[in-house]
Each structure stands twice: as C-alpha cells, then as structure tokens.
C-alpha cells in the first residue's frame, strides 16, 4: 500500500507575530516544528504500514529549511520524502497550496493520503479537503481512529462536536488527522543517522509545470486577498461597580441600551 503523508512546518509558538506591512506571519527566529495534527498523521501512516505493509512517503511544501521537518519524518520511519519548494510557490493561499501539493501527489501516486486537520499557524483546515477535491477522491476529515483497512476500503472513526461517525470509504482516499488519531513516536537515534544519509527529492516549479497552471499558484494565483491582519488589542481595565445584584442588573441593561446592543 502506498501511503502518503502531507506535512507542514510551522513555528513552534502561539505567540506568532504579524509583519505589519505584508500582514503575513514573521517566521524568522522562531523554532520550527512539524504541525501537531500532521505528526499524528505520520504516526498513523507508520502504524498502518506496520499493519498492512507498503511504504510511507512524506511530502512537504515550504522553503528549503523545511528539509529538517522531512528528516524528522524519515527518522520516525518514513521511507522517502519530497520537498516542494520554489520561488513561484511563495505566497500561496490554501487553494494554491492544495493545487501544488495535489499536482505533486498525481506524480508520486497514492492509495491513502494523510494530511493534518489544520495547521497551528493558519488554522484554516482547508488544504487537506482541497487536495482531495483536486484529486477527485473521497475525504474523511477529523479522523480520530483507523478501524479497519482492506485492499479496497478503509473504515475510520470521525470526530464530531457531539458525536462520532463510523465511515467506510473506498480507496484511494484522503484522511485529515487530528492529534487524537495517534501519539507520535520519537525519532529513532539510528533513524536520524539514516535520515541524513537519504536523499530528499526536491521539486520546484519546473518539475511540476506540466501539471500546474502557473496562474493558479503563488501570491498572484491565490484567490484569498488579505486586506488587513491584526493581533489582539488589549482591552482597557473596564468599569467596576460595587453594587447589589439587583443594581448590577439595572446598570448592565442600561449600558447595553446605551450602546444599542439591546
């Protein structure tokens, strides 16, 4: 079985800062990690491989520094790795990113594709489903558990807010992983040595141009236009009233009426 995991390298902090000019995340100087949901996808893929055999290929789109995320995936036990990196890919939104990744996947081949549910830097949860749409394959988002797999189908448990679904999907299909899907293993010390002895395939625009429309990728090809971004502004100290509960109710209602909230 050919299992492919798509991962993203993200800044290891919740305190990401925005560049006020470009409204994009400033990544310089922030340590990078594999996105948590994606790492659960790697672990699930490795466990699936241990169950049914096959190979696990890991794919990452990003700058050349994303190499280390792929080495980490290899050191966990993935078989081979692809880095999709090109100036033309820069500035892509989720739609353009999904076009680039799905184009690469068409060339790489797959039976099951894992992506993370969403990345901690953007939180859109769009790329996985968009890849599936581009490839024309079924998708199950919020995958919490792999229940069964055969040559033709996979049965998974999908998390919902107040319930879960048991879903059987025909292969090939795409699953977006949540952290609960699998607790990632550590890299193996020997795996790290092996990971750096392996070659990572780097694909730029030239390698994918036969399957990609250049007008649909990069900053210019992205339908998303960021008008403005801003961090949370600290609120003022607020007003404190030392009154009885009844007086408090009156005061709050008066304030809400004053501001035309009610």
């Amino acid at each position: 079985m050919k299992i492919v995991v798509c991962i993203k390298q993200v800044p290891d902090t919740n305190e990401v800062k925005l560049d006020p000019k470009t409204n994009r995340l400033i990544r310089d100087g922030v340590p990078s990690i594999i996105n948590h949901d994606d790492k659960a996808g790697i672990e699930a893929a490795l466990q699936l491989k241990e169950r049914v055999g096959g190979t696990v290929t890991v794919v990452c789109m990003g700058p050349p520094q994303a190499d280390v995320a792929l080495r980490e995936a290899l050191a966990m036990g993935c078989d081979d790795a692809y880095l999709l990196s090109a100036r033309e890919f820069g500035g892509s939104d989720t739609c353009a990113t999904a076009i680039i990744i799905s184009s690469a996947l068409k060339k790489i081949g797959y039976d099951i594709v894992f992506t993370g549910r969403q990345a901690i830097d953007g939180d859109t949860a769009q790329v996985g489903p968009q890849i599936a749409e581009n490839l024309g394959i079924p998708q199950v988002s919020y995958t919490e558990e792999l229940i069964d797999v055969t040559d033709e189908t996979i049965t998974v448990k999908r998390q919902y807010e107040d319930r879960y679904h048991i879903i059987e999907a025909p292969l090939p299909c795409l699953l977006t992983a949540i952290q609960e899907l699998a607790e990632p293993r550590y890299m193996h010390a020997g795996g790290i040595i092996d990971a750096y002895a392996k070659d990572i395939t780097v694909w730029g625009f030239e390698d994918l141009k036969d399957v990609i429309n250049p007008d649909h990728i990069g900053l210019m090809g992205s339908p998303t236009k960021v008008v403005t971004s801003f961090g949370k502004m600290p609120k003022g100290a607020g007003t404190k009233l030392e009154v009885t509960p009844e007086e408090a109710v009156e005061a709050i209602i008066a304030k809400m009426e004053e501001r035309h909230i009610i």
Partner: peptide
C-alpha cells in the same frame, strides 16, 4: 527501543551508527 543504549556502535550489530559526540549529546 529508541537507540539510546547503542549510540556509538555500528548498525552492523544493531547499533545507531552514531559517533562519540552523539553519545556525549545524549
């Protein structure tokens, strides 16, 4: 399991294939 007990030894014998510097880091 994760190789911490065989860092500076050859993979030929099931080791990590690291060096003494790797071992010192661990």
């Amino acid at each position: 399991k994760y190789g911490l007990m065989g860092i500076p030894y050859s993979k030929e014998y099931g080791g990590v294939g690291g060096d003494y510097l790797s071992y010192a880091l661990c």
